[in-house]
């Protein structure tokens, strides 16, 4: 039991760190597209860690089922949202800030 408790602490702690890092990320990065990475991607893992950690706390029950359901849901919706957002930004002619060193850039 104590092991699960410890594991849960670890998960939640990691999730918390990840969340804050993402939060800082959206301030540190220079343009929308790069912020998208910081926000969207950390979102997934952060949420996953949190929810799994919480599910460990509640044990096998309806609650943990629901927590996992939230996780599953976020797992599908979060990247979709990120993608759709990036897609919209591109269609909306928002020019990305690109590294000029790289000649390889396309569209």
């Amino acid at each position: 039991m104590i092991l699960i408790e410890m594991l849960s602490w670890l998960f939640i702690g990691a999730g918390a760190l990840l969340g804050i890092a993402g939060g800082i990320g959206i301030h540190r990065f220079p343009d929308f597209y790069s912020r998208l990475h910081a926000a969207g991607t950390t979102d997934t893992l952060c949420a996953a860690l949190f929810l799994i950690g919480l599910a460990m706390q509640t044990g096998v029950s309806v609650a943990s089922f629901k927590l996992l359901l939230i996780f599953a849901f976020l797992f599908f919706s979060s990247p979709t949202a990120s993608h759709a957002l990036a897609n919209a930004a591109m269609l909306g002619n928002l020019k990305p800030y690109l590294d000029e060193n790289n000649a390889d850039q396309q569209p």
Partner: peptide, 22 residues
């Protein structure tokens, strides 16, 4: 990849070189 992004977040100075590829 998460670890990579976190590293970049906390790395001082110019930390990224964004690319658009097809």
């Amino acid at each position: 990849a998460n670890i990579d992004v976190i590293r970049r977040v906390f790395k001082p100075g110019k930390n990224i070189s964004p690319q658009m590829i097809k």
